[in-house]
Every structure is written in structure tokens, then in C-alpha cells.
Design a protein around this nucleic acid. Structure first.
Length: 363
DNA sequence: AACACGGGGGG
DNA sequence: CCCCCAGTGTT
């Protein structure tokens, strides 16, 4: 019995050349890639990189256009009120990104646009990935990005099932083409997004197939091994609708969850608490008189399943136009619930009380 | 190191 | 239904 042959070393120059040749022919054309290679508009690259954190390109395109139209320059972004920034980000998720963009814009206008990895890394919302991306794409700095695409491509190329962060960064640093750092970074990400995909990689057209350990194994999707994920926990909550879907009492959410957005007044229902108790607690806090149950809305997030009982309520507090507020999908769902109920009524009523009386009569 | 943080696309 | 996505900040 002979020992297994030592793994063939990856010829780095050949891989670089194959990847860049493929990229020059097949790389994606994206709106934030305007301008010369290695000298892109840093504002546009920065916004795109923040937007694309944990967000797929196809989806990011819509928000990118909306955001750049609203805030064409870092000065425009810095001068805008935070509510306008969140409104432009509405529906995109991970709203800390929008808050940090706004904060960082203020820093940039005051101190100047950073031109180095370290300078970008110091800004809020900019971590190692984004600092490497902006400094390489806009300033031609030799920094290798490390994102989900890079992790997957390198784990497969080197057939490493459990790539650690330091391992990925070291491999990416070693593979980076110092002559074209920006193009190289874009090339790895394009490869990961279009060829070396998580579920169904197109190995037959991959420029790196000749050297890929995962392809040689016959099980490319086994690399990297799937991550263990935390269980989704269910959260019970109550909310009150004071007004209607066009004009309602809204409050600003603080804390981490949907922080900065507006929403219907709500309270988490503790496990030892009844719905009535939670509703009473909520109504005391917002100085409102509870009404009837309008319905229950469930909303799934990555690690939370929110079950929200929505009640009508009355209050002397001023109502604000819903259209102008930045709301989460959850709150839009609640307001949509009201609208769908309205459609089933005999008469169009303009008040929650009217809707409920109709439901009672037909029940 | 582990967790929190939105929302949607695609198998 | 499940996994993943051009990650970052907090604990």
C-alpha cells in the first residue's frame, strides 16, 4: 500500500492569469464599477459595498439606484436628516448600515475622504471586508477581500472543509495579483457569484477547474462544510394601531432590533404574561385606550419569528402620515392586514372601529 | 468566539 | 423549508 500522494501545490501565477483572463471576458458590468480599474469613485464604491453586505447583488441593484438618486454625493448624504436616509434604505434590512453610512458621511465631509485601508477601517460600518474593497477598487491598494464568495472559492480550490477566517485571509493575500488588486478582488467575487455558486457550481466552465481540489473530489458542494446556525426563536408581541393605514401614531424604535425605524407602538409579551396584560402595559405606556383585536401578523427574520397581535386603540397623541416614515416590513405587513380586511367589507369605512363593527355583525 | 442584526432568492 | 448572501458591531 502506497502513501497517498502529497497534494499538488496550486500554481499561483497560473491561477491569477486564468482568473483575470476570465474576468476580462466574463466579469459583470455593475453600476458601481464605472471608472477606470483601480480608480473607481470611492463614494459610489463605498455605498455599494455597504449595501451589498449580506445582500445579494440582484437585490442590491434596486436599492443602489434609489440611494444614489437620493444622495448623489457624500456631501448630500452628510447633510440629509437621518430619517431621509432610513427612508431610502426602507425594506433593505440591517438598518445599522444606513445609520453608519450617515455617521461616516459626516466624518468624511469633516476630515476628508480616506484613501487607505486603515483610513476606511476607522469609519463606522466599515470592517475589514469593506476597507479592503474600497481601498483596492478606488485606490488600487493591494488588499485582498475576504467575503462569502472568497471563502467558498478558496475552500474549494484548496479543498478545505473548515476554512477559518485567518486561513481564508492568508490564502487570499497569497493569491492576490499585486499588479491588479482591484480587478482580482472583483474577479474572485464574480467567480463565486456566477460560477462557483453554493448549490450548483458550474465547474465545467470554471477557469480554475484544472487546479480545484473540490472538483477533483467529485463533491464540490461539500466545501466548505455548512455552518451550524442558531435556532429561530419565537417572540410574542402586541402592537396598537391608533389611526389607519394612512395616518397613525408611530414611535421610533430604539435598541438593536429595527433601531431607528418608525413603527406601531409595541411591546414584547413576556412568557409569564397574558396578551391582555401586555396590551394593558403597552396602552399605559403610550397613554392609549385599548380597542379590539384586528388580527395577528407573523414575521420571519433570520433568527426571530415574531408573532404580533395587533389591536386598535384610541389616543390623543398626534397621528403622522405613514407614507413619510421609514417602516420595517413587519409594520407594512400590519398595515396591509388592515387594508385587506377593508376590502372584504360591504362598506368602505375610514376607521378601525367601523371595520370591527362590520366584522362583529358578520361573525 | 458567539451572537445579533432583515429580508429575499433559489433549490 | 432550508441555506445563503460583496459583513459589522457588541458582548
Amino acid at each position: 500500500m502506497t502513501a497517498a500522494p502529497a497534494q499538488q501545490a496550486i500554481p499561483i501565477p497560473a491561477v491569477q492569469q486564468a482568473l483575470l483572463t476570465w474576468f476580462d471576458q466574463s466579469g459583470r458590468s455593475l453600476p458601481w464599477r464605472a471608472g477606470a480599474e483601480g480608480a473607481r469613485d470611492p463614494y459610489r464604491v463605498w455605498v455599494a459595498e455597504i449595501l451589498l453586505q449580506q445582500t445579494q447583488v440582484a437585490r442590491g441593484l434596486v436599492y443602489y439606484e434609489r440611494f444614489l438618486t437620493a444622495f448623489p454625493s457624500v456631501e448630500a448624504l452628510a447633510e440629509a436628516p437621518i430619517d431621509a436616509v432610513l427612508k431610502a434604505w426602507e425594506g433593505c434590512g440591517y438598518y445599522a448600515r444606513a445609520r453608519n453610512l450617515h455617521r461616516a458621511a459626516g466624518v468624511i465631509v469633516a476630515d476628508g475622504m480616506p484613501s487607505t485601508y486603515a483610513g476606511w477601517l476607522a469609519l463606522p460600518g466599515v470592517g475589514p471586508y469593506t476597507a479592503a474593497a474600497v481601498s483596492s477598487l478606488a485606490f488600487n491598494e493591494g488588499r485582498a477581500v475576504n467575503d462569502g464568495n472568497v471563502r467558498r472559492v478558496l475552500a474549494r480550490l484548496y479543498s478545505e472543509r473548515l476554512p477559518t477566517e485567518p486561513w481564508v485571509q492568508a490564502r487570499a493575500d497569497a493569491l492576490l495579483d499585486p499588479g491588479r488588486p482591484g480587478a482580482f478582488n472583483e474577479a474572485v467575487m464574480d467567480l463565486g457569484a456566477t460560477i462557483c455558486t453554493p448549490k450548483a457550481p458550474r465547474c465545467e466552465v470554471c477557469p480554475l477547474a484544472a487546479w480545484c481540489g473540490a472538483r477533483a473530489s467529485g463533491q464540490p458542494t461539500a466545501f466548505p462544510a455548512p455552518k451550524v446556525r442558531a435556532a429561530v426563536r419565537e417572540v410574542q408581541a402586541v402592537a396598537v394601531l391608533i389611526g389607519n393605514e394612512h395616518s397613525a401614531v408611530l414611535e421610533r424604535r430604539d435598541g438593536a432590533l429595527l433601531g431607528g425605524l418608525m413603527g406601531l407602538p409595541s411591546e414584547i409579551r413576556e412568557p409569564d404574561e397574558t396578551v391582555a396584560q401586555a396590551l394593558a402595559r403597552l396602552c399605559t405606556r403610550v397613554d392609549a385606550k385599548p380597542g379590539v383585536l384586528l388580527g395577528t401578523v407573523t414575521h420571519n427574520m433570520t433568527h426571530r419569528r415574531i408573532v404580533l397581535d395587533v389591536y386598535s386603540a384610541k389616543s390623543a397623541h398626534p397621528k403622522t402620515p405613514v407614507q413619510d416614515a421609514a417602516l420595517s416590513r413587519l409594520d407594512h405587513k400590519v398595515l396591509g392586514l388592515l387594508e385587506s380586511q377593508r376590502g372584504s367589507l360591504f362598506e368602505v369605512q375610514d376607521s378601525v372601529e367601523g371595520i370591527y363593527s362590520q366584522r362583529v355583525e358578520t361573525a
